[in-house]
Design a protein around this nucleic acid. Structure first.
Length: 198
DNA sequence: AATTTGCCCAACCGCAGACTC
DNA sequence: GGAGTCTGCGGTTGGGCAAAT
């Protein structure tokens, strides 16, 4: 469906852009406290911020929301991201839903800046096994070891064998609230072929 | 010390589905 | 039922910073 241009009073051209100030954060948080994190257009207007609702939503979800976990991604979390990405692909919001306190944006960024490189590196290693791998091996993490296939028979022969998890039923049941990391990790260690029956 | 390069991450954009009137 | 609006998602961009030259 083609999206018609919004006819709201809000003008994109005149909107504040760029980094949020702490004052803006406070205003936004105050309004969300009373109105809740929905009706973002209204929230933006009530807060007196010259920003679009979309921008307010993003700021709330990625920064101001309570229980946001900031800082380094742990090995366990990294392992989980790798496994979930293997199963789900670039479904960042779904992956983030399995990592309490982490946002889809954060995971996407982490993937693009760290994990995609590691995987490329790993692929190169398997393509060119003659090259000296000792340094790379030193740098690789425990999570990468598990991805590389030392997970006791859980590795897949190839991508074509991957079952399609995009089915609504699977994802619906997969998206029912956060689970703890350890449980999730163990869950993912199960033979992935099991999912083809789900 | 100054400049360049590369990386990280917050924020923006476009699209599509859901919702409302 | 359809048009308009809202919301959520994934891809991309660009500013700031640190390391390298």
């Amino acid at each position: 469906m083609p999206v018609a241009p919004a006819r709201s009073q809000f003008s994109k051209r005149e909107a504040n852009r760029g980094a949020w100030t702490s004052e803006e954060d406070q205003k936004l948080a105050r309004v969300i406290e009373t109105h809740g994190p929905r009706r973002w257009k209204l929230v933006a207007a009530k807060a007196g911020l010259n920003r679009c609702g979309k921008s307010c939503r993003l700021r709330w979800l990625n920064y101001l929301r309570p229980n946001i976990k900031r800082g380094n991604i742990s090995d366990q979390e990294e392992d989980l991201i790798l496994r979930l990405h293997k199963l789900l692909g670039n479904r960042w919001s779904l992956i983030a839903g399995r990592l309490p306190g982490r946002t889809d944006n954060e995971i996407k960024n982490y993937w693009n800046s760290h994990l995609s490189k590691k995987i490329k590196q790993k692929e190169n290693q398997s393509k060119f096994p003659e090259r000296d791998q000792s340094q790379d091996l030193k740098n690789s993490t425990a999570a990468m070891h598990s991805l590389a296939g030392d997970n006791g028979g859980t590795s897949r022969k190839d991508e074509e064998m991957k079952p399609d998890f995009s089915g609504d039923g699977f994802l619906d049941s997969f998206n029912e609230g956060p689970l703890n990391l350890e449980w999730m990790s163990r869950f993912l260690e199960m033979d992935e072929s099991w999912f083809s029956f789900a």
